[in-house]
């Protein structure tokens, strides 16, 4: 009992302390917006936005597949869990959860990244595209069509990640030949071994000249 009490107290202190800091910092930031450069300079030492304290959620704004989302998240929430569990966008898959398989690949500001190794809070104000955001209405993205045409999957679990990665691979200019495609798609593991057909699908889209 005693032990319980003594651990609880510092926690409370910590959080009220930090809330004060948050208010302080927020008012400094407001001050910067309206103040002359000297004030901003004085505040520079403190120009860290204190976003949250442990055990608190924080407002996070993301644009997901073109739609603005306002969320309240714990800082430790990964982008992957946020997409799947808060936004019900379950197209993005959790394969390993440790950066080793590529199943969770999404685009952030147009670049392919691993959503499992990314904290959602780090993407404040950024644009996220998932597999659900690729098709235009009923019309599939050319890469989606090419995967179907070339049988670029069997079980399909790695496929959303493969397709997001493939679209980016062409945009980056890393799909100029088969060797390049294999190298720059190596971050997407396929347990079913659909690799040769995935390469064919990417080559077709690349040669079809459509880049996005």
């Amino acid at each position: 009992m005693d032990k319980h009490k003594s651990t609880e107290k510092p926690e409370k202190e910590l959080s009220s302390e930090s809330r004060r800091d948050f208010l302080k910092t927020t008012s400094i930031l407001t001050a910067i917006a309206v103040a002359p450069a000297t004030v901003a300079k004085a505040a520079e030492f403190n120009l860290g936005e204190k976003m949250s304290t442990a055990f608190e959620t924080t407002p996070v704004n993301l644009t997901v597949n073109g739609v603005k989302k306002q969320l309240n998240l714990e800082p430790r929430a990964t982008l992957l869990d946020t997409l799947r569990e808060q936004l019900d966008l379950t197209g993005t898959k959790k394969g390993c959860d440790y950066g080793q398989c590529g199943a969770c690949t999404v685009h952030v500001n147009g670049q392919r990244v691993l959503s499992c190794l990314s904290l959602a809070i780090m993407h404040e104000g950024q644009e996220v595209t998932t597999i659900e955001g690729l098709a235009k209405g009923q019309e599939l993205h050319p890469m989606q069509q090419a995967f179907i045409k070339h049988d670029g999957f069997q079980c399909g679990y790695c496929t959303p990640g493969q397709i997001m990665s493939a679209v980016a691979c062409i945009q980056e200019g890393h799909a100029n030949n088969e060797a390049d495609i294999k190298e720059f798609m190596s971050g997407n593991i396929c347990r079913c071994g659909a690799y040769p057909n995935i390469v064919k699908a990417i080559q077709e889209v690349k040669n079809g000249g459509r880049k996005s």
């Binding site: 936005e49 304290t53 442990a54 809070i121």
Partner: peptide
């Protein structure tokens, strides 16, 4: 575990 999160915009703020 839970942690506190802070965003720094300058080197000084980061080091602070």
């Amino acid at each position: 575990i839970q942690f506190q999160y802070e965003r720094a915009a300058t080197t000084k703020a980061a080091i602070n």
